[in-house]
Simulated assay, not measured.
Amino acid sequence: MKDVIYDDFQNAVNDSLLRHKSILDILTKLGESSARINRAVAKSTTNCGCIEVNAKKQELNMDENSDLSSLKASLSTHLEGELCDSCRYIIEKEIGNNLFYLTSLCNLLNLNLYDILLREYDKINTLGKYTFR
């Protein structure tokens, strides 16, 4: 059933893309939408203040008794606070635009978004913590 949602979304994107049919248009719009996500997150910090970024060097305190769980627990996201409703709405909108152009790229290259998601999901489940991204 879930694959139907992805296929429907991919078909809807294909039907609604009019102005930016060129691969060059789609690639540049995808890059632009990624930048707009970055900008929206930055503005949540600098303009709104609902989140704060407190970044510093990640300290990896590994010894012979350490395991991956303790390593993961020792790493920080550098993020404090929660998105306010306004910032959440803007970031969700920008991520939606990014998904639109990513799906448009898949359509032009005759790639199935659901199949890509499944392969990535299988890789994560197979390798587990050892994917190290």
Rank of each mutant, 00 (worst) to 15 (best):
I37C: 09
M62F: 10
L68M: 12
L105R: 03
L17D: 03
H78I: 00
N61K: 14
V41R: 11
D115Q: 13
C50D: 05
R88N: 06
Y101S: 02
L27V: 06
D67A: 05
L117E: 08
R19C: 03
V13M: 03
M62E: 11
R39G: 02
Y89I: 04
S66D: 05
C48F: 04
E92D: 15
E120T: 09
Q10T: 07
E52Q: 14
L30C: 01
D25M: 11
S69W: 01
C50K: 04
S74D: 07
M62R: 12
G49P: 00
N61W: 08
L108N: 14
E94L: 09
N61A: 11
L17F: 06
E32F: 09
K56E: 12
D115Y: 11
N61Y: 14
T77P: 00
A35F: 07
L118I: 15
L18S: 10
D3W: 13
M62T: 05
Y130S: 14
T28K: 14
Y89G: 07
Y114W: 11
D3Q: 15
D25A: 11
D7T: 12
Y121H: 13
S86P: 05
L71E: 11
T46H: 10
I90V: 15
E32L: 09
R133L: 09
L71H: 07
G128W: 02
T126Q: 11
D25G: 05
T131R: 13
K57G: 01
G128R: 10
N65R: 08
L111M: 12
T126P: 02
K93S: 15
I23N: 05
L79P: 00
R36D: 13
A35Y: 07
T77M: 06
L68P: 00
R19N: 13
L60V: 02
C87F: 00
G49F: 01
N14E: 10
G128F: 04
S69P: 00
G96P: 13
T126K: 13
L117K: 14
T126E: 15
K21L: 07
L111V: 08
L109S: 08
C48A: 08
G31Y: 05
K72N: 07
N47Q: 11
S74I: 06
L68G: 11
L30H: 07
N11K: 15
I124W: 08
L99I: 11
A35L: 10
E52W: 03
C48L: 03
I5K: 14
Y6K: 12
I116N: 04
S33A: 15
G49S: 07
C50P: 01
N112R: 06
N112I: 04
S33M: 05
R88V: 00
S104Y: 05
I23L: 15
N125G: 03
K21G: 11
A35Q: 13
I37S: 05
Q10R: 10
N38L: 08
A35C: 09
L75F: 12
N47P: 00
H78T: 02
E52L: 08
K29C: 09
L102P: 04
H20I: 00
N14K: 14
I90Q: 08
N54Y: 12
